[in-house]
Nucleic acid binder design. Structure first.
Lengths: 338, 338
DNA sequence: CTGAAAGCGCTTACAG
DNA sequence: CTGAAAGCGCTTACAG
């Protein structure tokens, strides 16, 4: 079944046909008689025959393989996306090759090149937090290689994108805190190289401005995603003469680290300070108090990105647009009434 | 760079060499003069040339691709393992094709067949929770297809395995509870089709017996991994005339669900009942009280499995044995002193 | 409706 | 040290 892999030649020999005919029959070509097809199908089935995809790829210049590059596989957020992508792409006969950048621009470059060298038919990429130049991806796009960006996108790259409106989502989060009475709003932002981090800041500022809440530069901190930094930033914030009464965070991890630090400091949440995360991960309902967050439909987004890839493969819909998914506010105790 | 992919023929033409020579030069064959190699290397570098792996595979019957099948990609436990596997295998020139069984025996069968049809060079598999027969995998192993089992293994399959000693780990967890004074010990076990679940039960029973704590059949519940069941089982247990004073769980997810249920029921942990999970995931330090658990070195195990695969590919060490990793008890408040 | 032949991009035994 | 040729397992234009 494996060591003795059969070829269409074997089928042809067994059936006294030419391999051309076998190939056509298996592809259900209109040129082949029903009887012949029937015979070929039957034996192929019986033998558990599968075309050798390498031979097919060599002729067709396609590998029926999709490359997916994410910053970190072992993060629920991205592994869920991968799962969503698989669900769409496997039934269509594509396999998924995984690459991870570990949030490093160099590794990202390397892994993308490796996947292209491996002849993937296309790429779905979520950029690393440190990607500064996107030269190679831009070259690929210019050469009409199928690239789809997912969540962490770049304006520099002109290709289909699947995103949420981070500005709007951050606006909603900030507005929510303001609605609960917060007047000194801190924001623990992500890596500033990420467009999404910048868009979130924009939403944060816009909400402050719309609601006439003063923007205090010291309350906007570039925290990054490194968990080590969160505690010290939170301590610093809370030790200010006028500490914040509301904190919105780049993601749930950061928010949870912040919350744990606040607990250690004996700061009451939400009484003294309200806090909201982003992504609505499982942990939000584990931490005490439960963490408010922004729902981020990452599985559906993965499926959409996969669908855009398939469309491109099938030559229909020259999707060049950007698909924007809706987010929603999930209120929990960490921003609750006192 | 992509649309105009170059071949060794292109290199040969440009350099006035035959493609045989170019091929040999790029493989650094001893047959080729240093000068020629130099010329070829230089141009290949400049062009960003890569061999077409499909053409290479067609000749060599290798794809330089490894298939990894796990029950669920979007579970930290498995995604970490995948990440570990990648770390080892990518530098060796192998790409990783991912499959997930969603804990379904049928999907597992299907995805394994798809990966084999895709001509992966080997498989690293963690069996689904519902796998009852392993016929296809056994066929593969019999035909000397490289298969390595990872954590969720089966005695039926004679191949290298990377595991932890689940019986011992469960013994340790149970012993720990007994040491803290527990005398009525419940165990929320996993799917009984999993050998690991059965081995854990064995460890649980052995510890009870060794410490002369009575085994009470009603306290051993086949909870499975479906989160919906945990609350009802916990409620039932705690409403018994003599409720348990210690609960060991199949994994941290189950333990956390149990803990949340106990909170709702206003049952004090660890005062009224102590509880311990398994795997030592991040959430253990998020939930209140922090959850004791068993450390499970999943990344290292992934790396080991990957290494066994590479050894097999390189024909050295006919590893047929089983590699057993050590686990350790992580004590936290959920089993703390009162 | 079926087949012989060329070719996809490599590798490698054979020849020189 | 280098090259011509066969062949890996397919697809498909061409011929009948």
């Amino acid at each position: 079944m494996f060591s003795e892999k059969r070829t269409i030649d074997d089928l042809a020999r067994e059936l006294n046909l030419s391999k051309s005919t076998v190939s056509r029959a298996l592809h259900d070509s209109y040129q082949i008689s029903p009887e012949t097809k029937e015979k070929v199908f039957r034996l192929a089935e019986q033998w558990g025959f599968h075309f050798n995809p390498q031979a097919q790829g060599l002729k067709s210049h396609r590998s029926f393989t999709l490359g997916v590059v994410v910053p970190e596989i072992a993060h629920k957020y991205f592994s869920s996306a991968i799962s969503g992508i698989q669900d769409v792409v496997l039934p269509a006969g594509y396999n998924v090759l995984i690459g991870q950048s570990n949030e490093s621009a160099e590794q990202e470059d390397e892994v993308i090149k490796q996947l292209v060298a491996a002849r993937v038919d296309g790429l779905i990429v979520s950029l690393s937090g440190n990607t500064r130049h996107t030269d190679y991806l831009r070259t690929l796009v210019r050469d009409r290689f199928p690239v789809i960006l997912f969540d962490r996108v770049s304006d520099e790259i002109d290709c289909p994108k699947v995103i949420i409106d981070h500005e709007k989502a951050a606006y909603t989060a900030t507005e929510h805190l303001i609605g609960k009475g917060c007047r000194r709003l801190a924001h623990l932002s992500g890596p500033q190289v990420l467009t999404i981090a910048k868009n979130r800041i924009r939403g944060y500022k816009k909400a402050l401005s719309d609601y006439h809440v003063p923007f205090v530069p010291e309350l906007l901190v570039e925290n990054g995603t490194n968990p080590e930094y969160t505690p010290q930033h939170v301590r610093r914030l809370m030790q200010m003469p006028e500490p914040p009464d509301g904190i919105s965070c780049f993601n749930d991890d950061v928010a949870i680290n912040a919350l744990l630090t606040l607990k250690e400091m004996q700061v009451q949440v939400p009484r003294q300070v309200r806090i909201i995360g982003f992504n609505n991960e499982k942990e939000c309902r584990i931490i005490e108090p439960n963490l408010s967050s922004i729902e981020h439909p990452v599985v559906r987004m993965g499926k959409e990105a996969a669908q855009l890839f398939l469309n491109r493969m099938n030559g229909k819909n020259p999707d060049q647009g950007t698909v924007v998914f809706e987010t929603s506010l999930i209120e929990r105790a960490s921003t609750g009434n006192i």
